[in-house]
Design a binder for these strands. Structure first.
Lengths: 130, 130
DNA sequence: TTACATAATGTTATAATATAACAATAACTA
DNA sequence: TAGTTATTGTTATATTATAACATTATGTAA
């Protein structure tokens, strides 16, 4: 899907909130923050989140049940995601390493099988917390 | 922590169930299956799961909220996990590739930071579903 | 421009996943 | 054997996510 596509009203409201956030946002945190904009129900949030993930505009941090905006300009990595997560301050950074994505995209398991889609989460301490 | 350590009663019951399962098990599926053994409450299950994950006896498949037994004999990979997940039949296989774990353990981000812990989930179609 | 299809929205209810708080018991250790 | 830590039991509740159904908006092709 094309990242340049136009967002619907709810999608735009929720994307804007996630995009301007400095940290991953959880669904109910999002809900709380967009209630003044008329989005009242969890399902409205989850539906927008699903679509935004599909489009590659945001990513879900699976280990945290939280969402961050994609910071890779290139579309093709939306199915090949890697993040670093600080175990103290919970800061999450999207990793955009060409060599890493090449390595993982080309990785073959012992049956010779390749996987076009993956999600990688690194854990450790960020600069500040070390 | 040492994988050879003795498990407590609840830990053993829950580990045995996960270990003999051919697919990842969810917490409430586990609960249902161990009620006849006297484990009645979700918290009893979650506490055992937490400990088993800590010990490296089981792993959590984050994208599925489910748990599988570790099938790597070597302890040192309990903090460096990789799985393949079939998007049709949901079959999950733990990947034990020395080159992959070496690559990821030695991976440095653009700040030169290394991460000793990671979780990688590959998605695609398994042999049967292709 | 209208009919049809598809996407998005709104709403209520409920399912599924996970933890808080407190009390009691068992196992380890000095 | 006293003190400490790990484990268990129990009730209640918090958090995350989806089902089901009705409605409105948008895109598309005759």
């Amino acid at each position: 899907m094309d990242k340049q596509q136009i967002l619907s009203k709810n999608q735009q409201i929720i994307f804007d909130l996630i995009d301007k956030s400095s940290e991953p946002l959880k669904a109910y945190t999002i809900l709380f923050n967009v209630q003044k904009k008329g989005i009242k129900a969890p399902l409205q949030v989850y539906r927008a989140l699903d679509k935004l993930v599909e489009m590659g505009k945001i990513h879900k941090i699976e280990s945290r049940n939280a969402f961050i905006a994609c910071h890779n300009s290139s579309c093709q990595v939306s199915k090949a995601t890697a993040f670093s997560i600080c175990e103290i301050c919970e800061k999450v950074t999207e990793i955009s390493s060409v060599s890493l994505s090449k390595y993982l995209t080309n990785f073959k398991d012992k049956d010779g099988m390749k996987y076009s889609k993956y999600n990688l989460e690194f854990f450790g301490l960020c600069k500040k917390c070390r």
